[in-house]
Each structure stands twice: as structure tokens, then as C-alpha cells.
Simulated scan of single mutants.
Amino acid sequence: MSTSRSDGRDRDEEGRARNARPRDGLGRPLPYGTPGVERQPEGIVRTPAETLTEAQDLLDAGRPFHAHEVFEDAWKSGPGSERALWRALAQAAVGLTHAARGNARGGARLLRRGADGLAAWTGEAPAGLDTEGLIRWARALAARVDRGAPVDAAGSAPRLRRAA
């Protein structure tokens, strides 16, 4: 539960920052009282397969900011050996978010950071995750963004798993 303090900042009962403002599909804050899209609950522990399924659904719906939150949960709650992998996926999702918002410089930078993190991953990819395909996707999208191409979040969403 969030409460609004006299300084206008939303905090939970322990005093941690929790922004309760509604957000649009790309995670941009909207004015209080404006209908927004449903937020992803924070702190959910999912299996790698559940994480990839939920994130793919959000990416396909044009909601990469919300997919980033799912990856962030995996990064924070998963085993230490996988944290760099989930962090790289979160960075790539935020890169797509920024690119779709029109922030080309930040979008391309975060897409490359995500690709570099995935390229550095040496472990076995969980749940059929297609790390090589995601590296190619992120670098190609970053190059498109650098050339000034507009980005539609849903139309530019990656496939997270290898084709069966």
C-alpha cells in the first residue's frame, strides 16, 4: 500500500519510495486520477519459464516497461548465478521502452548494454531463452534507432525463446 506524504512523494509503510501514479503502456507517468494500464506487481518470485512467458506477453502487447519489471523481479529474487542474465534482459526491455518513447540516444545505449550483458553470459540459458537471437535483435534495433527510425514497441518486440 502506498501513501502520499506532505512532500508529494509516494512511500510505503517502511518509508521506501513507491510511485503510485498511473502509467501508460510505455511506463510514462500520468496525472493522478487518470486511468492508466495496470502495473506489474513488484517482488513476485517466478520460475524462469513463468518469467519468460509473462515478459513475452507484455512485450507482444507493446508494454516493454512492464516486461522490464518482470525481468527485474527475476534479477532481484533469482539465484545469484543468473542475476546478470536477468539484468541484461531488463536493460534491453528498458532500451526498447526508451526507443519507443522517442529517446533514441538512451534507447540505443540501453539496447547495447543489454546485448553486451547477454553476450557476456556464459551459463546455460534457462527455459529455452534465445540469448544469441536476443543479442542480434538488440544490436539491430539499436542500429535502427541510431538511424532515426521510429520504433513501435509491439512491432519491434523480440522473441525471447528459441523457435521450437
Score class of each variant (00 low, 15 high):
48 P>C: 14
1 M>P: 08
32 Y>L: 03
124 E>C: 02
26 L>F: 02
2 S>D: 00
94 V>C: 03
1 M>D: 06
76 K>D: 05
37 V>T: 10
20 A>R: 15
27 G>H: 01
97 T>V: 05
47 T>L: 12
106 G>W: 04
36 G>W: 12
32 Y>N: 01
42 E>C: 03
139 R>H: 08
134 L>I: 14
130 D>K: 10
3 T>N: 11
121 W>E: 01
123 G>A: 01
45 V>W: 05
73 D>E: 04
137 W>V: 14
101 R>A: 10
24 D>H: 01
7 D>F: 05
88 A>P: 03
33 G>M: 02
122 T>P: 00
65 F>K: 07
62 G>E: 14
96 L>S: 12
135 I>M: 13
119 A>M: 07
102 G>V: 06
121 W>V: 00
80 G>I: 09
25 G>A: 11
79 P>K: 10
11 R>F: 05
7 D>M: 06
112 R>T: 07
110 L>C: 01
59 L>F: 05
72 E>W: 15
50 E>H: 03
163 A>R: 09
119 A>P: 04
57 D>V: 10
152 D>C: 03
70 V>S: 15
106 G>D: 14
107 G>V: 09
140 A>V: 04
78 G>D: 07
7 D>L: 09
51 T>I: 02
87 R>C: 04
5 R>V: 05
46 R>F: 06
9 R>V: 15
142 A>W: 09
80 G>W: 06
160 L>A: 11
4 S>R: 14
60 D>L: 12
144 R>C: 00
149 A>Y: 09
105 R>T: 12
19 N>W: 15
71 F>E: 04
89 L>W: 08
90 A>Y: 08
121 W>N: 00
56 Q>G: 10
70 V>I: 15
40 Q>K: 03
27 G>T: 00
145 V>H: 10
105 R>H: 08
100 A>M: 05
98 H>N: 08
82 E>H: 13
106 G>Q: 11
89 L>V: 08
80 G>M: 06
92 A>W: 05
93 A>R: 04
40 Q>V: 14
91 Q>W: 00
110 L>P: 02
14 E>Y: 15
106 G>L: 07
100 A>N: 09
156 S>N: 13
132 E>D: 10
86 W>Q: 14
95 G>M: 03
10 D>F: 14
157 A>W: 02
20 A>Y: 15
47 T>N: 12
52 L>A: 12
95 G>F: 04
22 P>E: 07
161 R>C: 02
74 A>K: 10
136 R>V: 06
25 G>H: 00
78 G>C: 10
153 A>C: 10
109 R>E: 11
156 S>Y: 13
25 G>P: 00
47 T>H: 09
141 L>H: 14
103 N>A: 12
37 V>G: 14
60 D>H: 06
56 Q>D: 07
46 R>V: 03
76 K>T: 07
5 R>K: 11
72 E>T: 13
141 L>N: 14
58 L>N: 03
143 A>Q: 06
138 A>S: 11
64 P>V: 11
124 E>P: 14
37 V>W: 00
91 Q>K: 00
97 T>L: 07
148 G>K: 07
144 R>M: 00
18 R>F: 02
